[in-house]
Amino acid sequence: MRGVRMRTGVSAAVTAAVVLAALAVPFAVPLDEQAVDLAAKLQAPTWAHPFGTDEVGRDLLLRSVYGLRVSLFVGVAAALAATVIGTAVGAAAGALGGWADRVLMRLVDLFSSVPHLLLGIFVVTMFRPGVWPVVASVVVTHWLSTARIVRAEVLSLRSRPYIDAAVSGGASRRRVTVRHLLPAVLPQAGLAAVLMVPHAIWHESALSFLGLGLPTHQASLGNMVQSARGSLLAGDWWPTLFPGLFIIVPTLAVAGLAGAWRERLNPRRRSELTL
């Protein structure tokens, strides 16, 4: 029990620090993404450059923070949009039932049948590189699980007597869905959204790492790890390590928070864990 609380506290603190850094630092220290300083290239970490510099002499700490900002934006925007779409489709499928349910769920199956990184790559290649195509690519591939979760919840709720009572009380289909079904599935959908944030961050990094995500000059964690590959072979570890940590630590923190939320939603799981 203390371990769980400790993990939640650490996760919350790290998440808060990351969000604060991503929001505040760009106001305090501006970054010229095009500026290079070849005299200072590939310096190991020093007090002047705590994370060292990359192969064209840019400060890695500042670029990592800017990259984090991009990652968080992509993560949160994609998770929100995917959750809204997934909830709408899942609720419609579950509440309408019949052929509407079958059509919508076959659509979900259709999207799921394509490996989702492949589908994501297909989406980003249709547009010029930028933040929004990356968000779109993550959304298109990630509303599916939310739709399934919400549909399953709605189906199990739909046969409850309180839904019968609402139908008997004259509530329209829409009212039953909006007033009784959706409020009941919102905690689950919210949890799915939070769990999706780290996943979306990884996707942004993966797409950028493959050279398909953001423009290469833009400070993004994926881009930085990508351009650091060459110097890693030469023994320069810092351009890979620090951006890599910036990908891993925040995603673990957000996932930890989501885990704590899930345990609150489902107390039985918690008691099983403590036993």
Binding site: R160, P161, D164, A165, S168, G169, G170, A184
Partner: peptide, 25 residues
């Protein structure tokens, strides 16, 4: 919902388990 609202609301229904028959929110 395939019955009209007038037809449905002609009936008041009380169920066995009030816990399940009440929206918990």
């Amino acid at each position: 919902h395939r019955a009209t609202r007038e037809q449905r609301t002609a009936f008041g229904v009380v169920f066995q388990q009030p816990r399940l028959a009440a929206d918990p929110r």
